[in-house]
């Protein structure tokens, strides 16, 4: 279950990273003894080994409109069952992105830094394996679906 302070956004628009921090602080204002804010932002990398040129022009994010949101709720619920968190925020881009674009923002607040760092890493690891999103890399000549990585499965199952 989400708390009132939590926020999920799945959008084709650019992510507002400064706004992420501001809204998280605002959402946490009623939390007693707030001591830590961790914000992670993932960027689109230009280099991709699956393309013969090694460089992508577009990263296309496909999602399942109904299931993407509910799978993010599931992941946040798991994080909340493990750590005492103030607010949790997950914003994810979908559609066509270009190199250096912000693709995902995960942010948490808590009393102490350890649980905020751990929860942010947990959320990212679970986003990689449980949230209904699929990446495709494209340039003028090729279009390849990104393969599921064993390293992501290991990171997710390590929790």
């Amino acid at each position: 279950m989400l708390e009132n302070a939590d926020h999920i956004l799945v959008t084709q628009q650019e992510l507002d990273i400064a706004g992420v921090y501001g809204s998280l602080r605002g959402a946490s204002s009623n939390i007693e003894d707030l001591g830590a804010v961790v914000v992670f932002v993932g960027l689109v990398r230009e280099f991709d080994k699956s393309l013969s040129s090694g460089r992508l022009q577009i990263l296309r994010l496909q999602h399942h409109p109904e299931l993407t949101q509910s799978s993010i709720v599931d992941v946040i619920t798991q994080a909340r069952s493990r750590w005492d968190l103030g607010a949790v925020l997950v914003h994810h881009r979908v559609g066509d992105l270009r190199p250096t674009d912000e693709i995902v923002a995960v942010a948490v607040t808590s009393k102490h830094r350890a649980e905020a760092f751990d929860a942010a890493r947990f959320l990212m690891d679970k986003l990689k394996t449980e949230v209904m999103l699929w990446k495709q890399v494209l340039n003028a000549d090729e279009a390849n679906w990104v393969a599921f990585k064993d390293s992501d499965a290991k990171a997710s199952s390590s929790w």
Binding site: G42, H64, I103, M132, K135, K149
Partner: peptide
Amino acid sequence: VALLPPVTGG
């Protein structure tokens, strides 16, 4: 019915 391959977001 929707077939959902292993996800690759994040």
